[in-house]
Design a protein around this nucleic acid. Structure first.
Lengths: 360, 360
DNA sequence: TGTTGACCGGAAAGCGCTGTCAGAAAGCGC
DNA sequence: GCGCTTTCTGACAGCGCTTTCCGGTCAACA
C-alpha cells in the first residue's frame, strides 16, 4: 500500500482519457496540446491532487531541481545569516535545497559532496571555510572534478585552497588588517588574539591579515598572547580565560569570530576586567545581537545574507571554461564601544613594559 | 555529455564482469553474493568512483533517504537551535534533509509540503508554529492526509490546531504562566507584553499563559499595554518604542521572544529607561547570547537542540493508528538580572496609580 | 550414481516520467 | 475531392536502479 497510494501521471492520463505522453505535455507545457485536452488533463490532475514524482522526473530528465548546501554548523549565526540569503535565492529560482551540516568534520564534508552528487543536484554550495589539509584537499579536488564532469556546478564562500572553485570571498585578510589599523589608530600597541581551529582557512586569513597590518606598524604579537579556541561562545570564553591564566599583557584583544568575542567578554567580566576600560575587545562578522551587547562590540561587518544570495547566483551561472570566478566581498570595520584608547594605568596582570604611545 | 558522464551501476557491473543485478546485490548487501565477486564489484565501484543515482534508487525502491524540514526562518536563532538537533539526528540515521524556509508565509508552507511529497520524503518535520487560520488549516489538513496516504510521516514542533500530527510541544502556555508567577513573585503588578504576529499559535499560547497566570492573581493587563510586533530584533524595538509612545505604565515587560526582547532592551535604553531599574524585561526561548547581554535576560529556557532531536525521532517512529502522539517539553524559567522587584519611584511615563505591593 | 535442495547469478520486468517518432487528424490550395 | 503540409497524439523506448523469477551448480544424502 505504501507504494501504490501515490497518484501517478498514468492515473491522471486515464482519468482525462488521454495518453500519459499527452498528460505530461499538458502539465509541463513543453509542446502544444489541444486546448480542450489540456483542460481535461489539468482538471484531472487537480481532482486527483497529482504531484509528480520528483525522482522519476529527475531520472527521465537527467537533472533535478535541487541544490546542495554544505555548511559547518547550521546553528551558528554566521551560517544562519548566509542560509537566509541562500534560501531566499533558492525560493526565487524554484529550487529546493538539500542541507548538510558537517559540524566542522572534513570527512563529513567530503561525504556530503558525494551524497549530493548522487542526488544529481544542479549545484553544490560550500558555505563553510576551506580546510588547510593537503590530503583532504586532494580528496576534495577529485570529488569536485567528478562533480564538474557530471555538470554539477560548485560555488563556495571563503577560500578553499587548491580547489579552484567559483567563490564569494569575504575579505577576511583585508578586513582583519583594516581592523588592526583602526585599533592601532586608537593607540593600542599590545595585542592578543583568540583564534579558531588553525585548520580552517578563514581563521588563518584573519590572523594573517591582523598580524600583517600590525607588522607594517612595527608591532608584533607575543606568541603566548595568541590563544586557540573553538568557534563558539564557550570556546571564546575558555580561550580568554586561558589568556588571562597565561598573563594578559595586551590592551586589546581580537577574537576571530563574534561568537568567540561574546564568550571572551563574559570571561573578562568574570575575571573583573572591564571592557573597554581594562581591555578593548573586537570580533569579526557582525552577527545580529552583537551590537546590543554592553558594550556593543567592535567588529568587521560582513553582509551575510548578501553573501548567501551571491554564492547562489554564482552557482546558477553556467560554468566558464578556464579560470574560476572570484567575487570579493569587503568587510566593514564597525567601531563600537568595546574598543577605546588603551587604559593609562597598566593592568595588574599586564607586565609593566613601557607603553610606546601617548595615552588617549 | 551532461548525462553521459556519470558512472552507472552498469559500468561497474561491466568493469567487474558481472551482471548489474549482482553488482546491485554486492553493493547493497541485500542477498549473499560469492565473496570474490563481491570483492570485484566493490573494487570496480571504488575504481570508477561510483555513486548510485539516488533518483533511480528512490524510484526503484519507491522510497527515499530524505526527510523534509520546514521552518519559518532559517536565520532565526530559535530555528537555528532546533535545526542543529535535527541535522545531528539526520546524520546519525543517514538521512539527508531538504530544508524549506517559509519566511512565515502560510502559502509557502503549503507548497513546501507538496513539493516534499513530490520528493517522496520519508517524513516531513514542521518546525515552525502553526497558523491560526481556518482556511489554511483546511488546506493543510488535506495536504497532510495525502502525505499520510503515501506513507510520509509528519511530525511537528509547536501546536498546529486542527491538524492532528505527532508533535513535540514546547509548553509555551505553562512556561509563560510560570514566568508570570515568577514575575508576580518579584512584586510586579503592572505588566506589558510585546507579542508577535497573532496568527501564530506560539504567540497566542504564550500570551494566553501569561495572562491566565496573572488573572489567577487578580492582575489584568491593560489592552493598550499589549503591543504587537514582528518576530525580530527590530520588531521588538519598534514594539517597545510604540509601547513607550503609548505611555509605559508597566513595571515589567514580557516579550514573547528573546529576539524581540533584545530589541526592546535597546529601545528602552534608547529612551533613557534602565533595565531593570525602571522596567523589568523578560523574554522566551533562551537563545544563545541572551545570557551575555547586560543585564542578562530573564527568560523561559527551551532545550532547542533536544527539541530538534526529538521531533526527528518522532518522525522516524512508525505511524500509530488513532490518536497522535504528543511529547511535551517543559520550559524552565531562568531568572536573570533583567528582572527585579519593581522600582519604588513611579516612572515619569507611568501614570501615578497606587502600587499594590510592598516595594523591595 | 541419481535425486534433492540450498545457494547464487543473470535475464528481465518494472518504478514514473520524458522525449522521440511515426502516424492520424485537420487545414489548405487547387 | 485530392494531395500536400501542418499540428497533435499515442506508442514506446529509455533514464539507472531494484527485485522477482528462473535456471544452473554443487554439496549432501540415499
Amino acid at each position: 500500500m505504501d507504494k501504490w497510494s501515490q497518484v501517478t501521471l498514468n492515473d491522471v492520463a486515464r482519468e482525462a482519457g488521454v495518453s500519459s505522453a499527452t498528460a505530461s505535455r499538458a502539465l509541463n507545457g513543453t509542446t502544444r496540446v489541444r486546448a480542450d485536452l489540456r483542460e481535461r488533463v489539468l482538471a484531472a490532475a487537480e481532482r486527483l491532487a497529482y504531484t509528480p514524482n520528483a525522482h522519476a522526473q529527475a531520472l527521465a530528465r537527467a537533472s533535478s531541481q535541487a541544490v546542495g548546501v554544505i555548511c559547518h554548523d547550521v546553528s551558528d549565526p554566521y551560517f544562519a545569516g548566509i542560509s537566509g540569503g541562500v534560501m531566499r535565492a533558492a525560493a526565487e529560482h524554484d529550487l529546493h535545497v538539500i542541507m548538510g551540516s558537517t559540524f566542522r568534520d572534513p570527512a563529513r564534508e567530503l561525504s556530503y559532496v558525494s551524497m549530493m552528487r548522487g542526488q544529481r543536484v544542479r549545484a553544490i554550495l560550500l558555505t563553510g571555510s576551506g580546510f588547510e589539509d593537503r590530503a583532504w584537499q586532494g580528496a576534495m579536488r577529485e570529488e569536485l572534478a567528478r562533480c564538474a564532469a557530471a555538470g554539477t556546478r560548485i560555488a563556495a564562500v571563503s577560500r578553499h585552497r587548491g580547489l579552484r572553485v567559483d567563490s564569494v570571498l569575504p575579505e577576511n585578510r583585508a578586513g582583519a588588517a583594516a581592523l588592526a589599523r583602526a585599533l592601532l589608530g586608537l593607540g593600542h600597541r599590545d595585542f592578543a588574539v583568540l583564534t579558531g581551529p588553525p585548520a580552517i582557512t578563514t581563521v588563518v586569513d584573519r590572523l594573517a591579515g591582523f598580524q600583517e597590518a600590525l607588522a607594517d606598524a612595527g608591532v608584533r604579537i607575543a606568541p603566548d598572547q595568541i590563544v586557540e579556541g573553538a568557534f563558539s561562545r564557550d570556546g571564546g570564553h575558555r580561550a580568554a580565560s586561558e589568556l588571562i591564566a597565561r598573563g594578559l599583557r595586551a590592551t586589546c584583544v581580537f577574537a576571530s569570530t563574534d561568537i568567540m568575542a561574546v564568550g571572551a567578554l563574559a570571561a573578562f567580566r568574570g575575571h573583573g576586567l572591564s571592557v573597554p576600560g581594562d581591555v578593548s575587545l573586537a570580533g569579526f562578522d557582525d552577527i545580529p545581537v552583537i551590537g546590543d551587547l554592553t558594550p556593543p562590540l567592535t567588529t568587521v561587518a560582513l553582509p551575510l545574507e548578501e553573501i548567501g544570495r551571491r554564492v547562489m547566483a554564482l552557482a546558477l551561472r553556467p560554468a566558464t571554461a578556464g579560470r574560476s570566478r572570484v567575487e570579493r566581498v569587503p568587510g566593514t570595520v564597525v567601531l563600537r564601544a568595546s574598543t577605546s584608547a588603551p587604559a593609562v594605568r597598566p593592568l595588574r596582570e599586564r607586565s609593566p613594559r613601557p607603553l610606546t604611545e601617548t595615552p588617549g
